[in-house]
Simulated scan of single mutants.
Amino acid sequence: MPTNLFDLTGRVALVTGGNKGLGKAMARGLAEAGADIVIASRNEDELKSALDEILAGTGRRGAYCVTDVSVREEVKKLATFAIEKMGRVDVLVNNAGMNAPQAIDAITDDTWDRVLEVNLSSVMALTRELVPQMKQRRWGRVVHISSIMGQVSKEKRNVYSATKAALIGMSRASALDLGPHGITVNCIAPGPFMTDMPMSVLSEPEKQAFADRTALGRWAQPSELVGPVLMLCSEAGSYVTGHTLFVDGGYLAR
């Protein structure tokens, strides 16, 4: 049956930033498809409650790891934790990210360095740690969460757009590195999704402007990212690699 293409039974998925928003929605979708789950973020209380919600009714195993991905050593510890706790990691969703809007002539070194570390360098570091054991099994799925802001931009998004565009470039190169080992690497570039990050930095007129630019005339719910991530993380996406899937409600079509 076609639904078997999306079956992740026996797989283990690690989702960074899995405590809320898109990360939590994707982790839940992966668990419902049969995967055991590891989530990570800085907030232990949120991780505990999120993991309960992610696993509820699925019969899957799960674990969480308190991790600040801006600290390189903690990223390495996360990879070690996930492998030791679950025995393997087959699917990696690099979702953790941040935004700190500043105009080009106002960016501080601290802001530049931190956003770069969280949005880009930590993705490289975690992927680097986890792909060797994927190579051993000749199967793996890596998905970086980019953004439409890696393709277009707006005022004060210098650091954010730079990192999200870089993820697209890195995924193409990694796809070539890892393809011979049965591992696919892709990006998902969400458009306007109703999560804490955009809601906290956008004014009401800006929020409306984003909605109006989409073909569908609205913001998306986090659950609407589940289908795309399942496709890329399962056998359904076995011949898709080095690709960026824009899930934007038609934002870039206008």
Rank of each mutant, 00 (worst) to 15 (best):
K20I: 03
G21K: 04
G21R: 00
A25C: 01
A27N: 02
R28C: 03
E32N: 13
G34P: 10
G34K: 10
A40F: 01
N43I: 06
N43K: 05
D45N: 15
L47M: 08
K48I: 15
K48L: 13
A50P: 04
L51S: 11
A56H: 06
T58N: 06
R61P: 05
G62V: 14
Y64L: 07
V66H: 14
V69L: 15
S70A: 14
S70K: 05
V71C: 13
E74S: 13
V75R: 06
T80Y: 06
T80S: 15
I83Y: 10
I83C: 14
M86P: 02
G87P: 03
R88L: 06
D90T: 07
V91L: 09
N95D: 00
A96Y: 05
G97Y: 00
M98V: 11
M98Y: 03
N99M: 09
A100T: 14
I104Q: 01
A106W: 00
I107W: 01
I107D: 01
D109V: 07
D109E: 14
W112L: 11
R114H: 12
R114Y: 10
V115E: 12
L116C: 12
E117W: 00
S121N: 14
S122W: 00
V123C: 08
V123Q: 00
M124Y: 13
A125F: 11
A125W: 08
L126V: 01
L126I: 06
T127W: 03
T127H: 03
R128W: 13
E129F: 06
L130D: 00
